[in-house]
Design a protein around this nucleic acid. Structure first.
Length: 784
RNA sequence: GCCGUGGUGGCGGAAUGGUAGACGCGUCGGACUCAAAAUCCGAUGAAGGCAACUUCGUGUGGGUUCGAGUCCCACCCUCGGUACCA
């Protein structure tokens, strides 16, 4: 095996010495900005990171070879819950814990040889970064895009803190869910709903995977419908949204959400129901309020329920038509609510549009006609209006936690912005596990906001800070932003498809409206990568996950599953261990080869050995190579140019590096067979193609052949002359079944080809051909 | 529940509607070696057959088409997200 350790560390040293990955912010070359989602410093780099950064690194190196000035930065998303938990559990300061993790992970990253411009590194937990979060917050207040409002949260009485839904679930699982209530707190929000329409239409301008666009579309959830007013005798009327006004005669109940204004008028039973937190949100849970609303169409009194399934958006109230809505049907079944058919149906429930019945003068109309007619009648009475509704809620950014950006607000004389930025996190705090630690600080002051910001705020604009990360006067220099207005390619896990990516798009638009950015959309192209999985071994006898090295011969007692690598399942594979054993380049090659980037990847140590073998063969070939006059070999040249074409295509289109690497392996095999005909140019072209994937060995071999660094070389070009084939083999089918192959000249006439084909498969034809299909050069099919 | 993903040999995967299984792993056989490792060469979807070859085969059931892994409909399973994990 080639000496990968020596080669890798010496190449990395050379790269660092020459600072060849640093980016000129003001470069006048063509520019390309490739970015991987910034990591949370959990303490150790995992294979998911390696995969993410390898994908980005390949693109960065390829683009450099194409003559682009490439921006490829890295930093740390270093605020967040785990640091605070470590503080509570082990008495470590969150800052120390975080910084220690960062320095460890940085070391690991450097050993993996990614082509980052480290001079741009950022850390979101440093005041020089979060200062600008606070500055943005102030701007948003000025713009009317941040406001304070009451909202329900999961509140743990014993811990005196807010819990995430995930934590609530965990608490219920371990039988500790009893003290969790729904509590109303006054909190800060960002008005993302003001941008709902833009965020929706903006999706059309970006080159993102269709499924991610659809998820965002559905999350925003635009629906056109009607807001209908129903009277509650003795109270204000209630407004309910519906997209199916045609079913209004079928209303047999009304449901409101748990934060609806009407609840304040209700008794303790309902209020207690609202406070309860239960595990199962989807069981059609609801309670009758004791009040009725009047259906303006027929004057009928229908019961009002508070129901879990009504989301806190829009009017927070929906009409219940069990006959024609499946969820309403289930709710009605559970609560014994009556059902009335108003769309002619064979069977109930029936959610399809159709012809109306039981609907007075609207009987016999189609749904669409009826919606118009019914809306017109009600709007004359002032009881209904057309309305566009969104599922998207405003973004609650307040967190009752320590390790985040302090919200820069003082409450001395009402609500006041604190303009002396940064408002730094106090260090004289206690981590007792109960309440917000900031409240224990003496230095922080009594009149300040003690909530911190959601960490999604940090990660919503960090890519802009990279442009000018050491700027102390401004969030970034506008001139540099004009040079690098968008991320050309953004790479990260599909788990961020909605929240992070939607928040970032929102903040970017806000910044654009503030005149800070020149484009509306931050990420021109998105690649969502799959997870890295490996086998986990769960022992059914002692209920523990075993490390693979601790397994017995006999696995009868074990549940073996392929799942996401994680600490708790003892199935993680440490990148540095693999790099030590097989080399960094082999790790990269394997992780890129084992699956296309967007798919989940199954870890397999045998596979990485295969990658190392491949690189060893490359090394061997170059070691044995001598520069001398050789004859041209058309097959070798065709293979070479076919591979250049293939790899370039992958780079320019879908980034399916697994296919590109397979092509490189095929080329290597051909070059081995034909090594007597191999010249320096061909060998060099092969190494160029390989270099983005396996940069250490490639640069090492280049230096042996008299060059320097591949990112300073130019990407090879296809010569179409070599790709042409004179003889094509065309498969023949009879009735769609493969029956043979013939070789034809590329200039042969159709008739001649068919005659030859008939001869070749005569025994399957028996004379009577009904139809002949010939797709030139591709396929022949006879129907008999 | 809702929104989205995926399902192809023993395994990871490849395949603009046109020869299913490229490439790699594993396995088997051979070469080299005193031997082993490494390396190199060859075979490898399943069933039947001495063989030529035949039949079957891309989660399940239907459909469109000369032709479907690929398009359409229904279903099953899997994974991600679900607004305070990041």
């Amino acid at each position: 095996m080639y000496k990968f350790k020596e080669i890798e560390s010496s190449q990395q040293k050379k790269w660092e010495e020459k600072k060849i990955f640093n980016t000129d912010s003001y470069s006048n070359k063509k520019r390309y900005y490739v970015l991987e989602m910034l990591p949370y410093p959990s303490g150790a780099l995992h294979m998911g990171h390696v995969r993410n950064y390898s994908i980005g690194d390949v693109v960065a190196r390829y683009k450099r070879m194409q003559g682009f000035e490439v921006m490829h930065p890295i930093g740390w998303d270093s605020f967040g819950l785990p640091a605070e938990n470590a503080a509570i559990k082990r008495g470590i300061n969150p800052k120390d814990w975080t910084d220690e993790n960062i320095s460890q992970m940085k070391l690991q990253l450097k050993k993996l040889g990614f082509s980052y411009d480290w001079s741009r590194e950022i850390k979101t937990s440093s005041p020089s970064y979060y200062k600008w979060n606070q500055w943005l917050f102030c701007k948003m207040i000025e713009k009317g895009l941040a406001y304070r409002e009451k909202a329900f949260v999961n509140w743990s009485e014993s811990m005196q803190t807010v819990l995430a839904n995930e934590q609530v679930e965990a608490a219920f699982c371990s039988g500790k869910g009893d003290d969790i209530v729904q509590k109303e707190l006054t909190q800060w929000f960002f008005k993302i709903t003001d941008y709902a329409e833009e965020l929706l239409s903006g999706l059309d301008e970006i080159d993102w995977p269709e499924n991610v666009k659809i998820m965002q579309k559905n999350w925003i959830g635009r629906s056109e419908g009607v807001e209908l007013e129903l009277d509650i005798p003795g109270f204000d009327s209630i407004k309910a949204f519906t997209t199916r006004l045609d079913t209004a005669y079928g209303i047999t109940f009304v449901s409101i959400s748990k934060s609806h204004w009407f609840i304040q008028h209700l008794g303790d039973e309902v209020k207690n129901f609202v406070k309860q937190t239960v595990e199962d949100k989807d069981g059609g849970r609801g309670i009758f309020t004791g009040h009725y609303a009047v259906n303006p169409f027929n004057g009928e009194r229908v019961p009002i329920y508070v129901a879990d399934y009504v989301l806190d958006y829009g009017t927070k109230a929906v009409i219940g038509v069990p006959a024609h809505d499946i969820r309403d049907w289930e709710f009605a079944q559970k609560h014994g609510i009556k059902v009335r058919e108003v769309i002619v149906s064979e069977e109930l429930p029936n959610a399809e549009k159709g012809i109306l019945t039981n609907s007075d003068e609207f009987d016999g109309m189609t749904s669409d006609k009826a919606i118009e007619a019914m809306l017109s009648k009600m709007s004359h009475l002032g009881l209904a209006s057309k309305k566009v509704n969104y599922r998207l809620k405003d973004w609650l950014i307040s967190r009752q936690r320590y390790w985040g950006t302090p919200i820069p607000i003082k409450y001395e004389n009402g609500i006041e912005l604190d303009r002396e930025l940064p408002v730094e996190l106090p260090e004289d705090v206690e981590f007792s596990g109960s309440g917000n630690p900031i409240k224990t600080s003496k230095s922080f002051g009594d009149s300040r906001e003690t909530d911190t910001m959601d960490t999604f705020v940090d990660s919503s604009w960090y890519y802009l800070r990279y442009l000018d990360s050491n700027n102390e006067r401004e969030i970034f220099d506008g001139e540099i932003e004009k040079h690098w207005p968008q991320i050309d390619l953004y790479i990260g896990g599909v788990e961020h498809a909605v929240m992070h990516l939607l928040y970032a798009r929102f903040i970017h638009r806000v910044m654009s409206d503030l005149g800070l950015t020149t484009k509306k959309e931050p990420f021109k192209r998105l690649l969502t990568q799959g997870m890295v999985l490996s086998n986990s071994y769960y022992n059914k006898r002692d209920n523990k996950y075993y490390f693979p090295k601790d397994l017995p011969e006999n696995l009868d007692d074990f549940d073996v599953k392929m799942e996401k690598m994680s600490k708790s399942k003892n199935n993680g594979v440490a990148p540095e261990e693999m790099a030590d054993k097989y080399g960094v380049d082999a790790v990269r090659i394997f992780i890129l080869f084992a699956a296309p980037p967007e798919r989940d990847l199954e870890w397999n140590e045998k596979g990485i050995a295969g990658a190392a073998r491949f690189l060893n063969r490359v090394h061997q070939l170059v070691e044995e190579f001598e520069v001398k006059e050789v004859e041209e070999d058309s097959e070798l040249l065709r293979k070479l140019h076919y591979t250049i074409d293939k790899v370039t295509n992958v780079m320019e289109t879908n980034l399916h590096f697994n296919v590109a690497i397979a092509a490189l392996m095929e080329l290597l095999n051909t070059m081995y067979e034909k090594r007597d005909f191999l010249n320096l140019d061909a060998l060099m072209d092969f190494l160029k193609l390989l270099s983005p994937f396996a940069p250490h060995i490639s640069d090492h071999l280049l230096q042996k052949l008299g060059g320097q660094f591949f990112i300073k070389e130019s990407w090879p070009e296809v010569d179409n002359r070599y790709l042409k084939r004179e003889v094509l083999s065309v498969p023949i089918q009879v009735n769609g079944k493969h029956r043979g192959v013939i070789e034809v000249n590329d200039n042969m006439e159709k008739e001649q080809v068919l005659t030859l084909a008939k001869e070749a498969v005569s025994k399957y034809i028996n004379g009577n051909i009904k139809k002949e299909i010939y797709v030139t050069g591709k396929i022949i099919n006879f129907v008999v």
